[in-house]
């Protein structure tokens, strides 16, 4: 798929999503250059309010640069970025009040307790003194850190620090959360907990932009995604829309009782089947047809007396979508 086609498709996706919901973030023709090279080039997408928006791309694709621009930490070279209608360049303070930013690599202040740490950020976000204690208690309860309020920050584990950073991000009750790889250093259990917490935050009405390289987790979590590569947008839109437009095909794995000749020929005759690969008695392919017509695949196999043992579907395969749409090379 060439870049023009991809851009056209992404624009179509945007157009289809426009007006469907109130817009929390609007990025138009965003470019950021460093010297002669560009980190982000002519990037446009929108994030509707209340969504969990996955921002996906290979290493060096420009994810962190875009998120830092959204967080007012970088100035765009060209283009316009609006957060809830406020420009990140001209209305910095207004934007900062509305966002909670969690960078991909962060540290914590040593020598203070968990409560003092949050108190510092409550002050930094100008929360009235009288409200701080109650807000900190709520945030600690939400992030399940209440029992650790008097612990020194330096003694916390990496997972706890990650949760503490999220708690700090929530202390001023922002409507938009910008989370850059929030689960990168977490173990499996902590990731599940983080996912539950993010879903809870969405239920509370917050918009969440999350970048991650763990795509299987995002596919379960996100309601919409944008994929960028080499600083350019490949595709963006809601997960349902992507599914509808067949950008996200089903990944199907059929296990046979024993290898049989003619399986590949039987499958490629069906127009909705793509990328067939056979290894021993395992057949894997992409299915882009309607779910109600999958019986045709099984019929083609049973007609040739292929002994099918099991069929597995992965219908919202973000990883598959990502691999199909990106080339994997970085700038």
């Amino acid at each position: 798929m060439d870049s023009t086609t991809r851009a056209e498709e992404s624009t179509a996706a945007l157009a289809a999503g426009e007006g469907a919901a109130e817009i929390a973030v609007s990025v138009r023709s965003l470019s950021k250059t460093y010297g002669d090279g560009y980190a982000v080039h002519d990037l446009s997408f929108e994030v509707p309010r209340g969504e969990i928006f996955g921002f996906i791309g290979p290493n060096g694709a420009g994810k962190t640069t875009t998120l830092r621009i959204l967080a007012t930490l970088l100035e765009p070279t060209a283009g316009e970025v609006l957060v809830e209608g406020r420009c990140v360049v001209n209305e910095t303070e207004e934007v900062r009040r509305r966002i909670g930013y969690m960078p991909d690599r962060f540290g914590v202040y040593d020598g203070v307790t968990v409560e003092e740490y949050l108190e510092f950020f409550a002050g930094a976000y100008r929360l009235p003194r009288g409200r701080r204690a109650a807000v900190i208690k709520d945030v600690l309860d939400l992030t399940d850190l209440g029992a650790l309020r008097d612990r020194m920050v330096s003694s916390l584990s990496m997972g706890m620090k990650q949760r503490l950073c999220l708690a700090k991000t929530l202390v001023h009750d922002p409507s938009l959360l910008i989370l850059d790889e929030p689960a990168s250093a977490l173990d499996a259990r902590a990731r599940i907990e983080m996912r539950v917490l993010l879903k809870e935050l969405r239920r509370m009405g917050k918009t969440i932009i999350i970048s991650s390289h763990i795509l299987t987790e995002l596919s379960d979590l996100c309601t919409s995604v944008a994929i960028i590569e080499k600083g350019e947008l490949v595709v963006s839109g809601s997960m349902d829309l992507l599914q509808e437009r067949k950008w996200g095909t089903d990944r199907v794995k059929i296990t046979l009782h024993e290898p049989r000749p003619g399986v590949e020929e039987a499958l490629v005759e069906i127009p909705a089947v793509e990328l067939v690969s056979i290894e021993e008695n395992v057949v894997v392919f992409d299915y882009a047809g309607a779910p109600g017509e999958f019986y045709k695949v099984l019929k083609a196999l049973t007609d040739r007396e292929v002994p099918v043992v099991s069929v597995e579907h992965d219908s919202r395969n973000l990883e598959n979508l990502f691999l199909r749409l990106t080339k994997g090379d970085v700038q």
Binding site: T72, E93, Y101, R105, G107, A124
Partner: peptide, 13 residues
């Protein structure tokens, strides 16, 4: 060095 500068700059201070 402690990677806390971004947290500070992104605040409303």
């Amino acid at each position: 060095a402690g990677l806390t500068i971004d947290l500070l700059l992104a605040s409303t201070l």
